[in-house]
Nucleic acid binder design. Sequence first.
DNA 1: TAGTTTCCCTATATACTTTGTCAACATACT
DNA 2: AGTATGTTGACAAAGTATATAGGGAAACTA
Lengths: 149, 149
Amino acid sequence: MKLSAKGDYALRALMDLSMNYNQRLVQTKEISQNHSIPEKFLEQILRELKNAGIITAKSGQNGGYTLSRSPDKITFGEVIRVFEGSLSPIGCVSVKQYQPCTEETFCRFQIIMRRVREAVSDILDNTTLADVTGTPAKMDESNPDVYFI
Amino acid sequence: MKLSAKGDYALRALMDLSMNYNQRLVQTKEISQNHSIPEKFLEQILRELKNAGIITAKSGQNGGYTLSRSPDKITFGEVIRVFEGSLSPIGCVSVKQYQPCTEETFCRFQIIMRRVREAVSDILDNTTLADVTGTPAKMDESNPDVYFI
DNA sequence: TAGTTTCCCTATATACTTTGTCAACATACT
DNA sequence: AGTATGTTGACAAAGTATATAGGGAAACTA
């Protein structure tokens, strides 16, 4: 029932991009240092986020990453699905990544796991980056730490 | 956000034991065949369940496993914690397996993950094996398949 | 007591995830 | 053009999860 390291790192990186949205590009090295994420591992993760259309990259001097959309249009659920494949604890109750159960007969076990998936997605699909970081315009400059994770 | 194979197998094995509670012992081979679980892998899992006090074992001919307590006293949450360590998606929001966050500063990210943990444990700590399998006495003998997973 | 069945234990193999390394490629500035 | 900075991709090492193998201990049968 754990979030993988990739999913965790991705969300933390997106916090940084969210807080700098419409202000500046953020570079791999900076994110890596902020959160103690191995730099090359982070590069792979950012590439996956780029390929998923969640962030965009710019090369060259003063390059870096930024969100493709405003933070209130990116949900935790969308991000986690990129790395975990699904929010479901087991594949046979997944909506977006359904896999048939290994058991042929009806499975009461599914009912519980389906309830777990629904509870989790209710939260994660209805929470956006903006809900967590606020928007840059609303940041409390006197206490910026509160916005770091 | 996935349940590990061990946790999945353990729950399925416990379904079998739950349905035969107070009736007969169930053997590794039978469980293994019912759910297509590798037999030697299942042995390890059953041993962990035994060491956790959830099931008891008896060696020898007509030996096998049975629940240590009645099915309505064993929750999904207790079982999953044996194998996953915690219901929390990340360690720093765990009640029973707390680990300090990698970030020193206050982490808003935690708030969301804490809500996920609470939603998950509300379900899994309040659902017992009996809720899923029924008690043997109440089984619908005319349609036993419905009780298999 | 010998034999069979079943659970118990340790070591090893395989696959996947995570982390680390290396060498190219792209962009922007001078 | 040259250079600094940053991205991309392939690959290797370490760590964890999953699966397999072989032998040992306990309990029943006869």
